[in-house]
């Protein structure tokens, strides 16, 4: 169970703070796979990383993160070290390059585990079972990363990241560099990991909403550093209440429509600068239904069970 309350993280730059994550409040239940979606620069990676690895230029401004009843000291890089990997783990965006090129994978895992006080040989049988699960031969342990294909490296990293059964797994853009069939396999693995109890809650950060439709239990949509909407995936796709979510879903290509004849729709305009963002709802400049009230920040309210929206028009 992950509870995030009013989490605010800014980037410090020479021109001032970039307000990348503003007052984020949400929960993820045990066994929930939550998709975190939004366009580039909306703060989804900032949110994901701040839960495990909040380091400069990211600056902790305020808020609390509670995992399984225990508050995570995310503002303290050193204190957080103990929680990383055991409680919160990460499959990084750069999974293809995440392994030390000059160490054999097995040896690297051994050194990583020993450094965290875990005996490699104790974990080895489980490690092998999990390699089987993701259809990697045990030989990868004797190989160097260069000997693996991109997909194999990705799967290896997935196994390594989840080896200590973390309570929360953050998967950052893990499908971006893969072809479609591999994407599917990787997504199914995440579900499998959850079903087998390797991880409790999962956050999948992606800009590819269609992937979330297939595997996520719930989806959290962000816009320009603010949470827009969180709801079970079905509701996000069928009955979204935030105008941004609707436009986002509306701009997805649909099966059976020929886009040579009908133009693919987009959202006019572009997101605001986060260095000095306008007050109120940050989507209002592009919002077709904006009105006077939108100069105030709309609260992130639960309008029906499990469905949270931050929009004055939706309450």
């Amino acid at each position: 169970m992950l509870q995030v309350e009013n989490l605010t993280v800014y980037y410090k730059t020479i021109r001032g703070y970039v307000q990348a994550l503003e007052q984020a409040t949400f929960k993820i239940a045990d066994g929930e796979i939550m998709g975190l979606a939004g366009e580039s620069g909306c703060g989804k990676t900032t949110l994901g990383h701040s839960l495990i690895y909040l380091r400069p230029p990211m600056n902790y401004i305020g808020g609390r993160v509670v995992l399984d009843g225990q508050e995570l000291p995310i503002w303290d890089m050193e204190k957080m070290r103990e929680f990383r990997y055991r409680h919160v783990s990460l499959i990084p965006q750069y999974a293809m390059n995440a392994l030390n090129p000059t160490r054999k994978i097995g040896r690297m895992i051994a050194e990583l585990l020993e450094s965290r006080g875990v005996n490699y040989n104790d974990v080895l049988p489980e490690l092998k079972r999990r390699l089987d699960l993701v259809q990697l031969t045990h030989d990868v342990l004797k190989m160097y990363p260069i000997e693996l294909s991109g997909g194999m490296k990705q799967r290896t990293v997935m196994v390594v990241s989840t080896l200590l059964n973390p309570s929360l797994l953050i998967a950052d853009e893990i499908t971006s560099a893969l072809d479609v069939s591999t994407q599917k396999a990787v997504c199914e693995m995440l579900v499998e990991f959850r079903d087998r109890g390797f991880v409790k809650s999962t956050i999948i950060i992606t800009h590819d909403i269609s992937i979330l439709y297939q595997i996520a239990d719930s989806i959290l949509v962000m816009y320009a550093g603010q949470l827009s909407e969180k709801a079970p995936s079905e509701i996000i796709f069928r009955d979204a209440r935030h105008p941004y979510t609707r436009l986002l879903i509306g701009s997805l290509p649909k099966v059976g429509v020929r886009y040579r004849e009908e133009r693919l729709r987009g959202i006019p305009g572009s997101p605001p600068q986060l260095l000095n963002p306008p007050p109120g709802c940050r989507f209002r400049e592009r919002c077709p239904v904006a009105f006077d009230r939108c100069v105030e920040v709309p609260p992130f309210l639960e309008i029906s069970p499990g469905h949270f929206v931050a929009c004055w028009r939706a309450y």
Partner: peptide, 12 residues
């Protein structure tokens, strides 16, 4: 990247 990954996993 490999250093950042290790750091994210809490490696000393």
């Amino acid at each position: 990247d490999y250093s950042r990954y290790l750091e994210a996993l809490g490696t000393p």
